[in-house]
């Protein structure tokens, strides 16, 4: 299982990559593996506000519905529409092609409690 070092992680299994004021958000390799075949994604619209710890969308496997939680507050600047038509990309490339949204971060202080790759890996080892 893959945990890229340049990303930060949440206990809800999202990853976030911050460049300047823009955060790119997706779900982790562990999350896609636990879900199984992803068949449906619901994402917010561009311009919509997202709040840290609150649901910004939904991802569904054949069997289950899971909320997507935002690791940070801000406003959605870009949505990856391609994964709405091809949700299987989330299984194939969760850290690459299957990023979900980009957010203009409103409060960078919120980034301080995110997990490093190492801590996230430890967290899921314990969760198993």
């Amino acid at each position: 299982m893959d945990f890229p070092k340049d990303l930060k992680y949440t206990k809800e299994h999202e990853w976030i990559k911050v460049e300047g004021n823009t955060a790119t958000i997706g779900i982790t390799d562990y999350a896609q593996d636990s879900l199984g075949d992803v068949v449906y994604v619901e994402l917010p619209q561009e311009g919509q506000a997202v709040t840290k710890h609150e649901a910004f969308g939904v991802v569904e496997s054949v069997k289950a519905v899971s909320d997507l939680y935002s690791p940070v507050s801000g406003s959605v600047s870009e949505v990856n529409d391609a994964i709405i038509d091809s949700p299987e990309a989330i299984n194939e490339d969760p850290y690459g092609d299957a990023w979900m949204i980009k957010v203009d971060v409103s409060n960078k202080a919120e980034l301080s409690d995110l997990l490093s790759a190492e801590d996230y890996q430890k967290f899921i080892e314990e969760e198993k």
């Binding site: 199984g36 075949d37 069997k63």
Partner: peptide, 9 residues
């Protein structure tokens, strides 16, 4: 077993 390779496959 709920799945082996994947539900769809």
């Amino acid at each position: 077993p709920v799945l082996y390779s994947g539900v769809i496959e």
